[in-house]
Design a binder for these strands. Structure first.
Lengths: 133, 133
DNA sequence: TCCATAGTTCGTATATCGTGAACTACGGCA
DNA sequence: TGCCGTAGTTCACGATATACGAACTATGGA
């Protein structure tokens, strides 16, 4: 099991952050983690919306968040303690994380009926259907 | 040639925006377009950093930006006039776009030596190398 | 030592991305 | 009208990334 890699705060990129948070599952995980004032285990965040994320996918998602510099993970016995690196990122990119989290909140508040996919825009689905027939 | 699709502002998603701007080429295009106070053709934005984007890739990038709701494109004779939809998005997700553009500026300002790839984090490269040997 | 728990890694099917080649749409110009 | 040039799109395909089940690793008890 390879050791957990955390980028130095100066190696954190905007692209990495945006990419990590452009996935609805990761965004959900991160938002909930950021809302907590304490560490959370992976399984504690296994529910995203109405579905349960498989363990292997969850692990990958945490890796992406970790390597984007958004999250710090520390082994604690048999489980893993995850915390956000909000403060560090806030210093490097002021206002970025709050703006994204706020936008996510607004979106959830504004659109209660959860459209099935995301990450693929409505437009893409339309195109896909058009192609299919 | 299928007509240009622009999502209604209410169909614009945070995920779509973050995904679109998580690519350094698209981020660069969008940042420059946002800095302009007039429309720009695609070819006018063909230079990203130090390299020239192939036409086909450029077209795809604009499609992603367009379908994410970030950009409005209008055919004008033989060329295309692109403008940002900043104002609309600002209304739907206040502060999001400015925060991202600002973060991008800070990153460029802070790290003049342009690391070759992005979007794939430093960590990923490390892992890849580790696997290769 | 054996088991349960929490998480990781591997393998593979699937989806997305980047790009050259071919194509379409429009605007001159003869 | 037909032909050409320019701007951008679509297609095809190889490279890359993603999701997830199965197998594995580490840790903490009993």
């Amino acid at each position: 099991m390879r050791p957990l890699f955390h980028p130095a705060i100066d190696d954190v990129t905007v692209e990495g952050i945006l990419h990590a948070l452009s996935d609805p599952v990761r965004a959900s995980i991160y938002a909930r983690l950021a809302g907590l004032d304490c560490a959370a285990t992976c399984t504690a965040l296994q529910q995203a919306g109405d579905r349960t994320i498989p363990k292997s996918s969850l692990s990958q998602h945490f890796r992406v968040l970790r390597e984007a510099g958004l999250v710090r993970s520390e082994r604690a016995g048999v489980e893993m303690h995850n915390t956000t690196r909000c403060a560090e990122i806030e210093q490097r990119f002021p206002g970025l994380i709050p703006a994204i989290l706020n936008a996510h909140r607004m979106q959830i508040a504004g659109a209660p009926p959860p459209r099935p996919p995301a990450r693929r825009t409505a437009a893409a689905s339309v195109r896909k259907k058009a192609k299919a027939r």
